[in-house]
Amino acid sequence: MKVLLDQDSCVASGQCVMAAPDVFDQRDEDGIAVLLDDTPGADAADGVRQAAAICPALAIAVQD
């Protein structure tokens, strides 16, 4: 699984961090999401897919 994150679109809602805390984090200075792991393993797949689905800014894309 390959994860793509568009930081310019991100609105710092933190939804991805709640859904997949091992894959996403937020910058301390403004809460914009950062990718900790752009090729997460199978155990993180559900959380990442949920993160992509609920991101309010549609800033996360997943390629299988």
Binding site: V11, A12, G14, V17, M18, D25, Q26, E29, G31, I32
Partner: peptide, 17 residues
């Protein structure tokens, strides 16, 4: 909107909360 919103987002990160 984004310029002003980003001035306050740091206080609401998952970690800070």
């Amino acid at each position: 909107h984004a310029r002003q919103r980003r001035m306050v987002t740091a206080a609401f990160t998952v970690k800070r909360v």
